[in-house]
């Protein structure tokens, strides 16, 4: 009995690591079996958007820097990936380059933001987002303009080509779990607490000794790198990219995911991106109605559900805790 308790308490600090490894392996094996066809495509897409949304969660959810450019940063990653891959650079290296490219571009917004007050950030990111779309659509020789560019060779892992959704799914799922793990560790680390202080009150952050500029910049770099990874994943999954993948409406969809998650919660962001990716598949056919629902959802969520899914989770957690406490008291009394 006691040795069992000791073993369990030894594992407690690593509970997140265990969830990451076990969850990633289990989901990567079973989800492609459970889902097929269109549903598996949605799973893949949810993973891709989930990764990008986790990046945005670092920038907006944790640091309160309102960025509308996350989709554009995905685009930077995707184009970097495809253009380097088509020039013969090997597979894992291209993904690293994609992350690096998006992180550098994101860092530019972070650098500008260090000089201005935080509400300028939306303007900076809007300028960036539109510039990326403009370059993608007009710079024909490099980006193929509105026609986009195709990925010439689909990468392989362990000799398996990732060309089918079933072959790609394990990679997407494992990447999502990895990014979730990184973001979750970031949130509880000193870095995450500093970001939380900045978003709570910059004066509070300053008197706690937080170098606000440096941390803002770091948040944009991390968020951008995640977006770059998501972009590379999208390029592998679709084998083709064009400006239409990375426009403002995608940026707004990603923001909606973080808002629905609430309170900078990473787990909430993953759940929200699964829900919203699934819903947006149905909404795509409705165009204007879909947009209307996005718009209404943002306004209503902000006003009526300020804590989002995280708030709901918090409530359930409290109920469970009270329940457990009552139960233990009753057991002890017997």
């Amino acid at each position: 009995m006691t040795s069992a308790v000791r073993a369990v308490s030894f594992l407690v600090p690593a509970r997140r690591l265990i969830v990451f490894v076990v969850g990633a392996v289990a989901c990567a094996i079973f989800l492609p079996v459970i889902f097929s066809g269109l549903n598996l495509l949605i799973v893949n897409q949810a993973c891709i958007y989930g990764i990008a949304a986790l990046g945005l969660n670092v920038i907006f959810g944790m640091t309160s820097l309102l960025s509308i450019a996350q989709a554009a940063l995905m685009g930077v990653g995707a184009y970097t990936f495809v253009l380097t891959a088509n020039r013969g650079i090997g597979f894992p290296a291209t993904v690293v380059l994609a992350c690096l490219g998006a992180a550098i571009v994101s860092a530019i917004t972070g650098l500008i933001s260090t000089r201005v007050r935080s509400h300028y950030f939306i303007l900076i990111t809007l300028a960036l987002a539109e510039t990326v779309t403009l370059v993608a659509a007009n710079d024909l020789s490099l980006t193929g303009g509105d026609n986009g560019v195709a990925l010439n060779t689909i990468p392989t892992i362990f000799g398996d080509s990732l060309v089918t959704p079933a072959a790609f799914a394990p990679l997407a799922i494992a990447s999502l779990f990895l990014v979730w793990y990184l973001a979750e560790c970031l949130r509880t680390s000193r870095f995450g607490v500093a970001l939380r202080a900045i978003s709570t009150d910059e004066y509070l952050a300053a008197v706690s000794g937080v170098a606000i500029s440096r941390y803002r910049l770091a948040a944009t770099v991390v968020g951008g790198a995640f977006a770059g990874l998501a972009g590379a994943m999208l390029a592998i999954s679709d084998a083709f990219i064009g400006p239409q993948n990375f426009q403002l409406d995608t940026g707004i969809l990603l923001l909606l995911m973080v808002v629905l998650a609430g309170g900078g919660s990473n787990t909430g962001t993953v759940i929200a991106s699964a829900i919203l990716t699934y819903l947006s598949q149905g909404l795509l056919t409705l165009a204007a109605v879909g947009e209307l629902i996005y718009g209404v959802a943002i306004v209503v969520l902000l006003i009526a559900v300020p804590d989002g899914l995280a708030g709901v989770g918090h409530l359930i957690e409290r109920q469970v805790r009270t329940g457990v406490r009552l139960l233990t008291v009753r057991v002890q009394n017997h």
Partner: peptide, 24 residues
């Protein structure tokens, strides 16, 4: 009463809402 990013994000939502309503 919320952080400034929240009402600004709300105007993004309103912009989307207005555009799609006009389109409908």
């Amino acid at each position: 009463k919320r952080p400034l990013a929240i009402p600004i994000l709300c105007t993004v939502g309103i912009a989307v809402l207005l555009e799609s309503t006009m389109q409908l």
